[in-house]
């Protein structure tokens, strides 16, 4: 039956070349952990993506309960953590996943660096990867405020003070993120919007570019 559906769609849209591109390409032996155990270092990129998918899914479930305003933000996180079935698990996944994604990305970056895989013709992919790194740091920074407990509040206050000390642009950056004079209602809604819409949008676009370039150029050869 699946064959029938596949053929029906293929007749109309000619998806076989697309499938070949995504799924049917050959993967060389030197990155295959089944052949060389040490090749697990080549898995960190895939694991980063895996954790990112977990972050997106758990984040989607968190927004079902989270309320981004200063009166209810903490109460909604408290409710989610202690009253909702499996809410504590979903929040723990998002919390620890945020750290794990940084760890995996860090290891992936080191693997690419020390195997010299960023060299020609893969320079652009390295730059895109670094941009993904910065987006991830931004996601960590904005997500830290959202539970609206003391730790979140004072860390953000310090972060914005540091941002303010940038010459010339500092006060503007601070005001843009703050949405006013103090860390308050506007800051929380802005960080929420940046964390949930702006940065994930940019992240998905960059990930698409990253994967497209990997497929176009293939994996770098053995050392």
């Amino acid at each position: 039956m699946f064959k029938g559906i596949y053929n029906w769609i293929d007749e109309r849209l000619d998806i076989t070349p697309m499938w070949r591109d995504v799924a049917d390409h050959e993967v060389p032996e030197h990155v295959n952990p089944a052949h060389h155990f040490s090749a697990f270092v080549y898995c960190f990129g895939g694991l980063t993506f895996f954790i990112t998918v977990i972050q997106i899914l758990s984040g989607m479930f968190l927004t079902m309960y989270y309320v981004p305003d200063i009166i209810n933000a903490y109460a909604s996180v408290d409710y989610l953590q202690h009253k909702v079935a499996f809410g504590g698990i979903v929040r723990a996944m998002h919390h620890w996943g945020a750290s794990l994604v940084i760890v995996m990305m860090f290891l992936h970056t080191l693997r690419v660096f020390f195997t010299g895989s960023y060299k020609a013709p893969r320079e652009m992919n390295w730059v895109v990867g670094m941009l993904i790194f910065f987006i991830m740091l931004g996601l960590g920074l904005t997500g830290y405020l959202l539970p609206w407990d003391n730790k979140a509040y004072f860390a953000t206050k310090v972060t914005l003070q540091i941002a303010e000390s940038v010459p010339y642009l500092g006060p503007y950056i601070k005001e843009l993120l703050n949405g006013g004079e103090i860390v308050g209602a506007q800051t929380l809604t802005r960080f929420f919007a940046i964390h949930v819409f702006f940065l994930p949008g940019a992240l998905l676009a960059l990930l698409a570019a990253h994967f497209f370039m990997i497929r176009k150029q293939g994996i770098s050869g053995p050392l």
């Binding site: 799924a23 390409h25 050959e26 060389p28 050869g221």
Partner: peptide, 17 residues
Amino acid sequence: NIPPDFTAFPGKSEAFI
């Protein structure tokens, strides 16, 4: 639309999916 093969690399390559 034929994917590039890895005959340039030594050893056994295999399909991604």
